[in-house]
Write a protein that binds this DNA or RNA. Structure first.
Ligand SMILES: [Mg+2]
Ligand SMILES: [Mg+2]
Length: 222
RNA sequence: ACAU
DNA sequence: TAATGT
């Protein structure tokens, strides 16, 4: 497990103590001059929260000195969703993700409604494949699924690699074609063929895991 | 380095 | 820790 941290938000959308960076980010993103800092223990965080940001970090230190953070942007002092880096999640979309046991290893993937988490399609496990082939096939599956439904919804993936492969209509995989990889290669070849025979307008967008937390289609194995 |  | 990828 990664080290558990505690995030104190003195000034943000909803001040308090949070237990994950994404939760903290949710309170701090788009809030001008938000005041927050991470601590390694709950006790430390509670003490700091009770003490207040000014007492702990507001001393003579200007903003941003090592340890205590204050979000930059404009000055308003009120929540402003205009901060340049404020990319928004398009919830009217599908999110896809792969899950494997070993890499290469058995592969499965699914597509879910980004808003509700409802599983829209699920495939696998396929005997042997790679993480990236699974991510790739999942995106193409989503494209075909949405085309069949006449939907122009956006598709989210957290895979930079699969995004490039779909863009190129060509997976640059290193996986050998063997007896064990026959099935994943069938799915791969079919996906490539689909891309060459079909047009689509759906945007395929990188899911920003560090900012937004795990993609909604994640298998929860990490 | 970045994304898984 | 190791593998898949740009
Ligand atoms: Mg993924
Ligand atoms: Mg995942």
């Amino acid at each position: 497990m990664a080290k558990q941290k505690f995030y104190v938000v003195w000034e943000g959308h909803k001040p308090g103590i949070y237990t994950s960076w994404p939760e903290c980010q949710a309170q701090v993103n788009g809030y001008t001059d938000a005041k927050y800092k991470s601590y390694e223990s709950r006790a430390e965080a509670e003490a700091a929260y009770a003490g207040g940001w000014k007492k702990n970090w507001g001393k003579a230190k200007a903003s941003g000195s090592a340890g205590g953070y204050t979000s930059k942007a404009a000055k308003s002092g009120k929540p402003s969703a205009s901060a340049s880096s404020m990319e928004e999640i398009d919830y009217d979309s599908i999110s896809v993700d792969v899950g494997t046991r070993g890499n290469p290893g058995p592969v499965e993937y699914k597509g879910v409604d980004t808003r509700t988490g409802e599983i829209l399609f699920y495939v696998g496990p396929v005997e042997n494949g790679t993480n990236n082939l699974g991510e790739f096939i999942a995106i193409v599956h989503a494209l075909a699924y949405l085309k069949q439904k006449g939907s122009k919804k956006t598709i989210y993936t957290d895979s930079k690699t699969a995004l490039a492969w779909v863009r190129n209509k060509k997976p640059a995989t290193t996986l050998a074609r063997t007896e064990k990889t026959r099935k994943i290669w069938e799915l791969t070849d079919r996906a490539v063929q689909w891309l060459h025979e079909n047009k689509y307008e759906n945007k395929i967008v990188k899911w920003k895991t560090e900012e937004w937390g795990e993609i909604k289609a994640d298998f929860g194995r990490k």
